[in-house]
Nucleic acid binder design. Structure first.
Length: 560
RNA sequence: GGCCCGUUGGUCAAGCGGUUAAGACACCGCCCUUUCACGGCGGUAACAGCAGUUCGAUUCUGCUACGGGUCACCA
């Protein structure tokens, strides 16, 4: 077989050599140890949690080492592509603080443009580059074409691959595939000419020389030492439309773009042998690999399942809707990525997570379950450290978008709103009431809306409650300091025969009708409408005298 | 079904041949406290199983079980 002739027949228009292409993409000049990483999504939908994970790792590794982090759009499957998905991906990533030095970026006009000299950064625009290397492989006898008629191709595209594969008898199918593959390898120049003349499309397959009985030792930066069987499958390099498969694009692009570390999900582990073979065939140096474990969820039977796009907590845009701050989500991701992050953070509470010395060795090799409890806890901590002004701004912005009525109330008097969020904030032990911005309304909505009122516990006589409320109003003075205010509440308690000292009350609760705690509760419900609320004195101060008195008076009326 | 990866409390996880097997979340109890939140103290709870190597295995090896992934002209 004259391979050069075959190559010319298959790729008559390709005149460049690999060396020509290499010359256009010079090696990056980077400091020792600098890592070049990338995020390479296919634009088939929104960013999901499992995608933010590797991109965070890539961003950290690159930027922490003085390297480059770039975005490459893997749009080699036109059938699955979703309009606008690429733009959405970039926006969502930016929302979570993931910024790219290079690659496909949103230009000033809102459309995607290339930034950097290693482009194009959209694989659909790199066709000619792939063909140069494909031709090279053919000319070396390392790849060969497999023709189909257009009718066969249509039939192929019509079947539901997933369903078909699931129903397969594996053994039988693999034997048949193997036979077909071996037969296809024996194509002759004449057959190629005939097919070409007939206008039949072809796929280009790699001629695999591996023996699966032989294992190649391989070290993955996360999984550690692995043994992978050599590849013996003549996998597809170029699809019949001339577009490369993931495998081929991965090898060519990551080589030309100078990727030093490939970060991807562990579902790629089974095809690693293919990639190793491809890099060898092409004479490329293999990058380092980090195969990260999948994020899991619990299915209805209690089994772990890969967190898929439709699951609760998968779509990153849902987190915005639920009111999670991106900083909180990033923080949570860091705790999942590096087990020592929390410890570091406790000692460096004032530093941003980007100061954390991210370490590949600390990454877990097994998949973790997504845990909202933990996310909420992390969020509460992050938010508790924010200033009242920051919380005000963020809650308002969130509410304006997702709860406009509430948002308008918050925005109406910014200083008032901020004074509410200032309660218990700023000290050594700040309150932790909010995990999400959506928690704000149940927490402090009573400042704006006095219609929701909790019922008083049944054991208290309305006459007592009423007497307490009236007694309080009789001496209430907004100018009182907290101690004076509380002394007055105590006096009210005594007047209605309740104990004004908790220690004494606990000694013999049966001696009293109730305690100072109950009197406080009478007032709290009247003022806030709730059994539980932040410090009552402060609430009254913020609410102001007329509001406070008005609420108590209307409660007195209700009790009549 | 073949191949690959994984398995420490409910969850996330330290550990890297000798430990009373950390810590965080969740849960429970107590304390603080006019409620809540915060904070403090304490508690329940784990090395999947079986062999082997070893003076000694959570740690090394093998097998089994369970879980996950993959086997497309998808990524």
């Amino acid at each position: 077989m004259d391979y050069q002739l075959l190559a010319d027949l298959l790729f008559p228009n390709v005149t460049e050599t690999p060396a020509d292409v290499e010359a256009k993409y010079p090696r990056r000049e980077l400091a020792e140890g600098a890592k070049v990483t990338r995020f390479a999504p296919s634009p088939t939908g929104f960013v999901h949690f499992g995608g933010l994970f590797p991109s965070t790792i890539g961003e950290r590794l690159a930027h922490q080492s003085g390297g480059v982090f770039y975005l490459r759009i893997e749009d080699t499957d036109a059938k699955r592509e979703v309009d606008g998905a690429a733009e959405g991906l970039i926006h969502t990533l930016a929302h979570y603080g993931i910024h790219f030095d290079e690659g496909a970026v949103i230009g000033a006009d809102g459309t995607i443009t290339d930034k950097g000299i290693y482009g194009p950064y959209r694989q659909s625009q790199r066709g000619p580059i792939y063909h140069v290397f494909a031709k090279q492989l053919v000319s070396e006898g390392k790849a060969y074409p497999v023709f189909t008629t257009k009718e066969e191709l249509e039939a192929l595209n019509a079947v539901d691959k997933k369903a078909e594969i699931k129903a397969k008898d594996w053994h039988e199918d693999q034997t048949a595939q193997r036979e077909a593959m071996l037969k296809a390898r024996e194509i002759t120049i004449d057959e190629v000419k005939e097919n070409l003349a007939a206008g039949n499309p072809f796929v280009l397959r790699l001629l695999a020389d591996g023996d699966p009985e032989k294992k190649t030792p391989f070290t993955d930066l996360i999984k550690g030492k692995l043994e992978i069987p050599e590849n013996d499958e003549d996998f597809v390099l170029l699809k019949s439309d001339g577009i490369p498969t993931y495998h081929f694009a991965h090898a060519v692009d990551d080589h030309l773009m100078g990727t030093t570390h490939v970060i991807r999900g562990e579902e790629w582990l089974p095809s690693l042998a293919k990639h190793i073979m491809l890099f060898r065939y092409l004479g490329f140096r293999l990058p380092k690999y980090l195969h990260i474990a999948q994020i899991m969820r619990l299915d209805e039977n209690g089994n772990k399942k890969k967190l898929s796009k439709r699951d609760m907590g998968a779509n990153m845009d849902d987190y915005s809707r639920m009111g999670y701050d991106p900083d909180c989500v990033c923080e949570y991701i860091m705790t999942l990525l590096n087990s020592n992050y929390e410890e570091w953070h406790m000692q460096n509470a004032d530093k941003p997570y980007t100061d954390f010395p991210f370490n590949i060795k600390k990454m877990s090799s097994s998949g973790c379950l997504f845990d909202f409890d933990k996310l909420n806890d992390v969020s509460k901590n992050v938010i508790s450290r924010m200033s009242a002004a920051e919380v005000t701004e963020k809650v308002t912005a969130w509410a304006l978008q997702y709860d406009p009525e509430f948002g308008a109330q918050l925005a109406k008097d910014k200083a008032f709103t901020e004074s509410i969020f200032a309660i218990g904030r700023g000290g050594k032990k700040p309150r932790k009431d909010l995990a999400t911005w959506a928690d704000a309304k149940p927490y402090m909505g009573f400042f704006f809306d006095s219609k929701q009122i909790d019922a008083y516990p049944e054991q208290f006589k309305h006459s007592d409650i009423k007497a307490a409320l009236q007694g309080f109003l009789a001496t209430y003075d907004e100018a009182d300091d907290m101690n004076t205010w509380f002394e007055k509440v105590k006096a009210v308690a005594r007047e209605i025969g309740y104990c004004d000292d908790m220690k004494a009350y606990k000694q013999s609760p049966e001696s009293y009708a109730g305690s100072i705690a109950d009197v406080s509760m009478f007032l709290r419900v009247a003022v806030t409408g709730k059994l539980n609320a932040p410090d009552l004195y402060t609430v009254m101060q913020i609410l102001g005298k007329s509001n406070t008195v008005c609420r108590i008076e209307s409660m007195i009326e209700r009790l009549d």
